[in-house]
Computed example of a mutant assay.
Amino acid sequence: MANILVIKHGSLGDVVQVSGAVQDISENHKEDQIYVMTTKPYFNLFQNNPYITDVILDKRLSKLNLIYLYSLMNSIKKYKFSKVYDLQNSSRTSFYKRILFPKADKTIWCSTETTLPEGITKKDFDKDSVLSRFDHQLKSSGINTNHTMKPDFSWSAADISEIKKNYELDKYIILFPFCSPHLTSKKWPYYNDLIILINEKFENKFKVVTAPGPNEIEEAKNINALCVLDNGKALNISQLSGLIKESSFVVANDTGPAHITAHLGSKGIALFGSHTTPFKVSIERENFKAIQAPELSKLSAEKVFERVSEIIS
């Protein structure tokens, strides 16, 4: 029995997408112990993943913090990992490789860097879709990939029966009008107009709700929808997954909740501007589609509602 390390620091959408890859790694290492190293926001979530033995916390303090770095590297070395799957593929994790396994090839350290196709630059390789890159990375390292291209995030969903009871939720549509403060180009501005159309055209058949993150609760007051919280606090990721899983439909910006919806198999649409493409972030699934516009400010509520009506029926 060997110890295997998977590295995935974030973000939420990336953590959702990596579910299939983690499952494939686990199924190809049936006799081994699978550990994931992640950051605080996803520590408890990964602990609930049935394909993982345990979780290691990386506080991601400055690399100049030599005391922390020394402590973390020593902690990792104690596990005597026989193989590392770097699914973060960041400059930070490349730095970890140089400390832990400086001469390792893909048989020991599986990353974009060690599995890069011959004759292809990393810049060109990164133009491919997220899931395709994971698939290539794992296959190049000897993993049979049955799930990487079709992640299943259903393991994350918590029982939200009490929350539904408190808010009297039966049939409901969830809107996610939020985005990171430094990524405002992802924000579609017409959610309140969409709410009017939903209520009028569907004749109040559905409750319209939002589920803001911890830093979005104040912003949610500007949206004319029911704000779903847990005793005044934002839902955790597992509760959010449960809420999305039992929803009738989701409309979201290109953010973590959109990826949750896609990989739970729930119905919904994500709204894209010119910041990236639905293909590159691997978000479209059988029940989850995307609308892309050169400028989100020119994507009308009527156009979005038309797509909602097509998919929800």
Rank of each mutant, 00 (worst) to 15 (best):
D170C: 10
L183H: 09
C110A: 07
N224W: 06
S90N: 06
I99T: 14
S111I: 11
I52A: 08
K207Q: 15
F46V: 09
P102I: 02
D254T: 04
I160S: 13
I195Q: 10
A225Q: 12
D152M: 14
V208G: 10
K103A: 11
I237Q: 07
V281P: 05
N28R: 11
N28V: 05
Q33M: 05
I25S: 02
S90I: 02
C110P: 04
N65L: 08
K187P: 11
T145N: 07
S82Q: 15
F134V: 10
N236Q: 07
L12Y: 15
K123F: 03
T121C: 00
L194H: 03
G242M: 01
A234F: 03
V208C: 10
N166R: 15
A262W: 06
L194P: 02
F279H: 14
C227P: 13
V18A: 08
L235K: 01
I217Q: 09
I237M: 08
S75T: 15
T210I: 09
V228T: 01
P294N: 10
F176Y: 14
R285D: 11
K267R: 14
L183Q: 14
A290M: 06
I223Y: 13
S90Q: 09
Q137E: 02
A158P: 14
Q33N: 15
Q292M: 11
D254C: 00
E246N: 12
K40I: 13
T107A: 13
I25Y: 11
K78S: 14
I196M: 00
G13K: 00
V209M: 14
S274M: 10
D54A: 15
N166D: 02
T93E: 09
K106F: 15
N44F: 12
S185T: 07
K63F: 08
D159A: 15
S111T: 12
R92D: 00
S300R: 10
L138K: 05
I196L: 12
V55W: 08
E162R: 12
N89T: 05
Y79V: 08
E218F: 04
I120K: 09
N44H: 05
E200S: 14
K233T: 01
Y35V: 08
I283M: 02
G232S: 14
Y167A: 06
Q239V: 09
I312G: 01
F95I: 12
T148C: 06
K165D: 04
S71H: 13
A290F: 06
D32A: 09
T114K: 08
V228K: 04
E203A: 15
D58M: 05
E216C: 13
E246L: 10
A234T: 07
